[in-house]
Design a protein around this nucleic acid. Sequence first.
DNA 1: CTGCAGCGTTTTTTT
DNA 2: AACGCTGCAG
Length: 770
Amino acid sequence: MPDFLAQLNPEQRAAVTLPEQHALILAGAGSGKTRVLTARIAWLLTTSKAAPHEIMAVTFTNKAAKEMRVRLSAMLPVNMHGMWIGTFHGLCNRFLRAHYREAGLPQSFQILDVSDQLSIIKRLLKSFNLDEEKFPPRELASFINAHKEEGCRAADAKAYDEHTKKRVAVFTEYEAQCQREGVVDFAELLLRTYEVLLRNEPLRKHYQARFRHILVDEFQDTNHLQYAWLKLLAGPRTASPETPGTPDSTEGQETGAAETPEGACLFAVGDDDQSIYAFRGADVGNMRDLEREFAIASVIRLEQNYRSFGNILDAANALIKNNHGRLGKNLWTASGAGEPISVLECVSDVDEAHCVVDEARKCIASGVPRSQIALLYRSNAQSRVLEHQLFSAGVSYRVYGGQRFFDRQEIRHALAYLRLIANPDDDTAFIRIVNFPTRGIGSKSLDALKDAALRANSSLYNTASSLAGQASAAVGNFIRLMERLRSETRDAPLPEAIERMIVQSGLKQHYLNEKEGRERLENLDELISAATAFLDEATPEENETAMDDPLASFLAHASLESGEHQADEKGDAVQLMTVHAAKGLEFDTVFITGLEEGLFPHENSKEKHEGLEEERRLMYVAITRARKRLYLTTAYTRMLHGQTRYCMPSSFLDEIPENLLRKSISAWAKTYGKSPERWNPSDLRPGVLNMTSALTLRKSKMEASGKTAAFLENKEVNGFRIGQNVTHAKFGPGVILSAEGYGSDARVQVKFSQSGPKWLSLAYANLTPA
DNA sequence: CTGCAGCGTTTTTTT
DNA sequence: AACGCTGCAG
């Protein structure tokens, strides 16, 4: 037996050596999912069941794809050329580059990122004379993306009311505009690929015959379009090609049909309990659908966990049991129970940060590497306080997330120059840089240019250059600058071309003049290094195109691998990230902070029933990141949006059995919590503005049976309750909508009939019952 | 055309 | 608290 099989447990081995058929592997957290995936490929290759070019492996992140490649090449000396390993978007990009004609795209089509997409939408709104208040661009963007992810074009979009009809009109024009500019957004990469395969039978047959094994990682995160795409590629024995989402009437008969020579075996690995991306279109339901539509006889469950001690797993299992409609799974471990889980109550977010950092330092002192300590939080805003305390304590740390390298302003400007060099029709790039650095082209000349372009049915760049004499001198200068850049960079090596562009465009001078420009200049230098690195270590699929058109493929790389660049680890540092960002990672010691009702679970997800379940899965992911030690922390008060919020402990804390926990209260909460009357301002820790109110909250918590700070719901506070009509000396009559805070610190939101809703402090507002 | 002041917003995020 | 965007004045 080869090594890669010998190292597996029986379930893992069963999965890896399944006969050539469709399979669904339910792989719990820490159960060796990636190992099974790679071992499966190794097994297919070494037993000659498939040649490298007959295998496709799809992931969601570049990191996961890279990991797979690395581990595979460590397992056997396989030539990975010809094997399609990559992200959904990366593989679709590869497909569209190869078949740009069939897809109706220009050869060097560019990929639109989120903010480019937004800027196109804003432009269209203006041309439609629609109000951004009534049609928020972000909302329109998700409207468009959501439709595309359901396989739905503007022409197919349903609209019964005027408002939606207008949104569809923008959608229609958006599609046309992208087509004119020769750009595609992320969803379009997938949809366009799907449509080409659907409509072009020879091409479809070719790929169906080519790929005999399709392996999918994190299947629970697929959206409907991705699933439909997989079905299409997997071949005719699955559902007939229909628009995704449409019920398929013939499928029942076809699933049972005899095996056809074309078509691939689908090997999907996923964990429904770790589905945390429904908010962006992922549908766990795809797992059930896969099981049914691909007639999967038995789902293999990987339940042995190699990561965490028993107490941690028990906590995770107990928590996730509260979700409904699970496929069902219970993690177990051969290692012992380990230490109990520490639950720590603190007075404030600042107090919490103090305690966490203190505890982390103890861990470091006892020999845990800093990089094995993770501080997790629900939302990015929470990192600030933690960072502050880490900094004061002199503990080195690293924050993940935040803005990515390719998302920085200076990089986006530089990339826009490159895009306009590669593709003059890219209006989005044109608008971004035509007056940056400022060169005297304001909104007036730009509007004139837009009008002319509209009349000529041509791109801004082409219009401007054909208008040579008539346009303003400044516009003419810009066109000449771009022409010069285009000719000078054509034959230069990529890094050198970028360097010239940075100088000649004036970007360099601009940032030299800027006070905070030094870091930006360093980033621009980094962009040049990134180009050098790209040429050196392009992935196989990138290499196919990198030869003929290095610039276009570098730009695609920049769009598709925006996160990769910040992954460089610098030294041994404590890791700070959101729970979402922690998915797929593991640490010896994990702190889950901010466990308060309204924050985690987040209040915005509590309206929908499924929202709370997704939050619970998020908590499940967070817990299962820990190998040896887990801390759960909660605070009575927290600064949010510049205001102190009064919090209740997260309901998730109640869902973990008491016997797994070791509860404690922070020194501050203990000392002052017992005798609030002894408090005085000098006792207060910086950042905690009103500790008395925090204490009052504790008291109220004992009294109140309900959760959250909406304490006024059934009872009066200071003589007021929600729904009550009141009068204010200045604003007149109104009604109380909601309330927060306690005692002297209580505030209420009053909707006044004349001036709308306002937040008022009960102590000062002097409201009178009406 | 440019620069600045004031306003509103604020979950999670990969590609 | 902090950032981005809009509107206004120079």
